[in-house]
Computed example of a mutant assay.
Amino acid sequence: MSDQNITVAATKLVKVRGVEYAITDTGGSGPPVMLLHGWPDDKSLWRYQIGYLHTLGFRAISVDWIGHGESSAPADVRRYHVTQLGADTIALLDELEIERVHLIAHDYGATVSWETVANYPHRFLSYCAISVGHAVEILRDMLMGNVLHYLWLVLHGMDQASRYWYLSHGAKRFKDKFASHPDGNRILAKLTDGSDSRFWTIWERANPASDVIYRHFLREQRHKRIVVPTMGIYSRNDEWMTQGQLSRCYQYVDATWRYESIDGGHWVPLERPEEINQILGSWLARVG
């Protein structure tokens, strides 16, 4: 990868709804694209995409979620609920004076974004979810016999137990689960250096399965649809997520739907950047 595909913009802080978000913004007058990372990453996940998108003529913006990277880390766990993070996403667009944006999200960033795009459809030109599908389909996969595959969801809800499980025996379990992550050593160092480690379990603690079930089956999200062009990208060697939870998401989309299955592990934006860039470039050319 050339240097321009790694970074083309400095980090700046943007204050919205009482917190500060660290973002990179390539600027320019091209169509805006926002990139949202997941667990346990930060905006550096997109270091091979932001420059590439900029060279295609897009205004590329990558974001550190609160509790991650250089953004604020509120002490109140409720501040990390998906509805709060969705409201922050819209507030960031307002602050950056962006009316509508192409949204690309990975892992928990995608979990947040499925709801955000459904709740604020007029703010999005398209949506691409990488690795993680609609929350209801993850629950469905668990009920269909894959519950053991998702035991980490339960483990991550127990903060201290989770860290002990991953770090015991010389962090053997961490090294096994993160073998495909190019930044695994950096994440392990961050988890063990004595600094703020809320990034490790904050997603599950703020969004327990009981809350997901309540909102998606009984309350406001039950009938929400995706009405913008949407794509899912799944990597066939994903260590964390099953394929069905993403491939079935066409059921929630009342617009163009595209699904791609490629080789690679969970962190494909870093593992297979050229292939991901090619897919994203083709997708944005089609919908933009």
Rank of each mutant, 00 (worst) to 15 (best):
D3Q: 12
Q4R: 12
V8N: 14
L13V: 13
K15D: 12
K15L: 04
E20L: 12
Y21V: 05
Y21R: 03
I23F: 03
G27W: 04
G28T: 05
P32V: 05
M34P: 06
M34W: 04
H37T: 02
G38V: 04
W39F: 15
P40L: 08
P40G: 03
D42S: 03
D42M: 01
L45D: 00
R47G: 03
Q49M: 07
Q49R: 06
I50F: 07
H54Q: 14
L56E: 01
I61K: 01
D64P: 02
W65Y: 10
H68I: 04
G69H: 01
E70I: 04
S71T: 03
A73N: 10
D76Q: 12
R79K: 14
H81M: 10
V82I: 15
V82Y: 15
L92C: 09
D94Q: 11
E97K: 15
I98C: 07
V101T: 14
D107H: 11
G109W: 11
W114E: 08
T116G: 06
V117L: 09
V117S: 06
N119E: 07
Y120I: 01
S131E: 15
V132M: 13
H134Q: 14
H134A: 12
H134D: 15
L139I: 13
G145I: 05
G145T: 00
L148E: 13
H149M: 10
Y150Q: 08
L151N: 11
V154H: 11
L155Y: 10
L155T: 08
D159F: 11
D159G: 08
Q160H: 14
S162Y: 15
Y166P: 02
L167C: 13
A171N: 04
K172F: 13
K177A: 12
A179V: 13
P182N: 08
P182A: 10
N185H: 11
R186S: 14
L188H: 08
L188P: 09
L191G: 06
T192H: 10
T192F: 09
D196E: 09
R198K: 15
W200D: 01
W200N: 01
W200H: 08
T201R: 05
I202L: 14
R205I: 10
A209K: 05
S210Q: 07
R215K: 11
L218A: 14
V227D: 03
T230E: 01
T230S: 12
I233C: 02
Y234E: 03
N237F: 05
D238F: 04
L246C: 08
L246N: 06
A255E: 05
A255Q: 01
E260C: 06
R272H: 12
P273I: 01
P273Q: 09
I276K: 03
N277C: 10
S282P: 00
R286L: 12
V287S: 08
V287L: 07
